[in-house]
Design a protein around this nucleic acid. Structure first.
Lengths: 237, 237
DNA sequence: TAGTGGTCTAGACCACAAA
DNA sequence: TTGTGGTCTAGACCACTAT
């Protein structure tokens, strides 16, 4: 008998079935009763597994009727709700990063309050131009507290910092606060993105936290307004 | 003994306590055990109540340590995750709407596929300028299927359509798909918002669904880029 | 080692939808 | 009326944190 978490695994299996189109005929999942029998688990596990899929927007419930399959992404749009790094957003495409600068320096007064740390705390400041299939998509400036990210190099920054943090450093990421707004491009930003100063842009500012609630990253990303659209789900309950 | 849903009520009570600052000293909720004893409910109810607060971003869990209180809104920002109408976003301020047009007409080919209905289906098309404390914040064009919204008037549209749908029509709203991007203002849009043609703007396109999964509203809102910022939470698990 | 949240079992009854 | 998801009880043991 396996003694691992059952419901996450079950959620994954069901998600696979959805992607395989196994429920396309009815548009909904098997009943909880059937899922219990199919996978030999209790109702608790089934409901937990389905709850995972609800949160990710893969299904929605209709009491008395069933769990219906739902699209949780949009063609050509970046996902806002579940950030897993830009690389994960473009499965078929080439995601590259040009590292414009990478420095280890004190956080400074301006960011210290935002990062809830001392101004003298050390941090990696990274500036990258993110390219998708060779075209500039976004200009990113990110500050990682050294306390949590002990090492960062230009070579790593050229790839996916996100995957490095999770897979190599084993960082237990938790959640992020995001602020979005439209603005005008500065001349420096415009040049990097291949646009003109004053052109529109979409700005996303992230405060990123570990699972234990400690903030480790503050970032500001300026997106090319013609190439970046975002998709997200909202609950209206 | 009340036979109503306990956990929603409990969630509400806990939320009140949070807002009252009762957990400010420790920064976290009482333990599950204590909540059980405090409110005389089982652990199931406690965990469900806390799960509600987790989803809304009011708390986050740290296994072995506690449920910590978290900010789920940002000063001067609109909430993206839980739309309850613009009026609900500005508790202290005056939210007005100038109705630019309101017509009952067939959906037409362009919107029919998006609304998953026939082109001949009737719908209310509403255009409104949303003002906060007298200043133009956004220009909204929304299409409501008559099948679900049998009546709509200019008087209603001057107030909160959202509250009308929920409180008066008793509509059981479910969820919304949102697409966000930056763009340039057309001359008509610019004039309404008090800006210049070609200026940046933030566009939000919504597909809004009932709890049973039927889509009843398609909208496009163009926001004043200097006055509208959005705040949202992301899960990184 | 004690405290705290996470997972799981095996039931029961309620609320809503569809036939 | 039957099927299906929603709420609830009363336990048990596991995993992680803090001391």
């Amino acid at each position: 008998m396996t003694r691992t978490v059952q419901y996450r695994e079950l959620a994954h299996v069901i998600k696979q079935s959805i992607d395989d189109g196994q429920f396309r005929l009815t548009g909904k999942l098997p009943t909880e009763d059937n899922l219990m029998k199919l996978y030999g688990v209790t109702r608790y596990c089934v409901r937990n597994a389905v709850a995972v899929l609800q949160e990710s927007g893969d299904v929605y419930p209709v009491q008395g009727s069933g769990m219906f399959v739902r699209e949780n992404k949009r063609e050509g749009c970046l996902s806002l709700g579940q950030t897993r790094g830009l690389s994960a957003e473009f499965p078929g495409k080439t995601v590259q990063s040009t590292v414009l600068s990478l420095e280890l320096e004190p956080v400074g007064d301006a960011l210290a309050s935002r990062l809830k740390c001392k101004a003298s705390d050390m941090a990696y400041n990274v500036q990258r131009l993110r390219l998708v299939d060779g075209l500039p998509l976004a200009l990113e400036r990110s500050t990682y507290l050294k306390r949590f990210i002990p090492y960062l190099s230009e070579e790593i920054a050229q790839g996916s910092i996100w995957e490095y943090l999770r897979n190599d450093l084993g960082l237990n990421t938790g959640f992020a606060d995001k602020v979005l707004y439209a603005d005008r491009l500065s001349s420096a930003e415009a040049e990097a993105l291949g646009l003109n100063a004053g052109d529109p842009c979409l700005v996303v500012e992230d405060d990123v936290y570990l699972a234990n609630g400690e903030m480790f990253d503050a970032s500001r990303v300026v997106y090319h307004y013609e190439r970046a659209k975002f998709f997200t789900l909202a609950d209206l309950k």
